[in-house]
Every structure is written in C-alpha cells, then in structure tokens.
Simulated assay, not measured.
Amino acid sequence: MYNQATATYQKTTQSTANPRELEASLLLKAARKLQAVKESWTEDNSGLNEALDFNRRLWSILATSATSPESPLPRETKQNIGNLAVFIFRHTLSISRRSEPTRLNSLIQINKVMAEGLRSST
C-alpha cells in the first residue's frame, strides 16, 4: 500500500505544475480527515485509524522526499522536516495507544500550518 501511495504521489507530482500546491492540498486533506474524526468522535473511534494512517503515509512520503540527498532544500530545513516527521510518527503512535479527540489537535494544526507555508512560498 505504501508503494502504491508513493507511486501515485510521484506520478501526480510530475503531472502537476506546482508540486508545493499538491503537497499543501494533501496536507489539508489529511487535516480535514483528522478534523472529521474529531468532530464525530464515538467510542469505537470510527475512522480514526484510517485518518491516522493517511496522515502517517503522507508524512512518510514528504519526509523521505524532503530529506533525501537529492533534495535541493537547505540542510537546516531538511533537518526541521525530519524532526517534525519524527514527532508526527511518535504522536500518531501515542494516539493509537490512548485515543482522545483533543489529541488530534496538534496533527491538524501542524498540517494546516505546513500547507499555509507551502502555499505562501509558491
């Protein structure tokens, strides 16, 4: 599944005029999925795993791309994105173990801020 998501991301990125806009759109999509789960929270956490998995896979792709040796990003930016991805992965695991709707706030906010930054840098 990860390979399929990566291939789709790469294919879409190649056919899109602005990859940063695509990344911003995907981050906002992940934020919307997480927000929807938070707003319709139930005891069975319907949709939580799917939303967390989508966000985790997206951040795996973004972090891998941004921190690769071929990435033209400055070293400090690569390091910051890598550190942010590590936080997201750890927090996602933490939410999986002890799920509460308010614990989604940080993931939602990070995605929105990153999307805003990507859009303002185009």
Rank of each mutant, 00 (worst) to 15 (best):
L22S: 03
L107I: 01
N55P: 02
P74H: 03
E23L: 06
H91V: 07
R20K: 12
R56T: 13
I81L: 14
N49Y: 13
T77Y: 01
S15R: 09
E100M: 06
L22W: 04
T8K: 12
P72I: 09
F89Y: 05
F87C: 03
Y2T: 04
W41S: 10
T42Q: 13
K112T: 11
Q4Y: 03
A63Q: 08
S94H: 04
P74V: 05
M1Y: 09
I88Y: 01
L22P: 07
I110D: 04
A31K: 05
V86D: 10
R98K: 14
S106L: 09
Q109V: 09
L62H: 00
Y9I: 04
L48K: 05
D44G: 10
N55M: 06
L104E: 05
T8F: 04
L52C: 02
R119V: 00
H91A: 07
S120A: 11
T64K: 13
S46Q: 15
K33H: 10
S106Q: 12
K33V: 05
A85T: 15
E76Q: 15
F54S: 08
L52P: 04
W41E: 09
L107Q: 04
T8Q: 14
S65L: 07
L34W: 01
S68G: 13
F89E: 11
K11P: 06
R20H: 13
L48Q: 02
N105F: 00
Y9K: 08
L84V: 08
R119K: 10
N80V: 02
I61G: 12
N49K: 15
H91E: 12
A63E: 06
R98Q: 09
Q79I: 05
G82F: 01
E100I: 15
N105P: 10
E100P: 03
E21P: 00
N105Y: 01
K38W: 02
Q14S: 12
T64C: 14
T67C: 06
G82M: 02
T42A: 11
W41K: 07
A51F: 06
F54G: 02
S106C: 03
T6L: 14
H91M: 10
I95P: 02
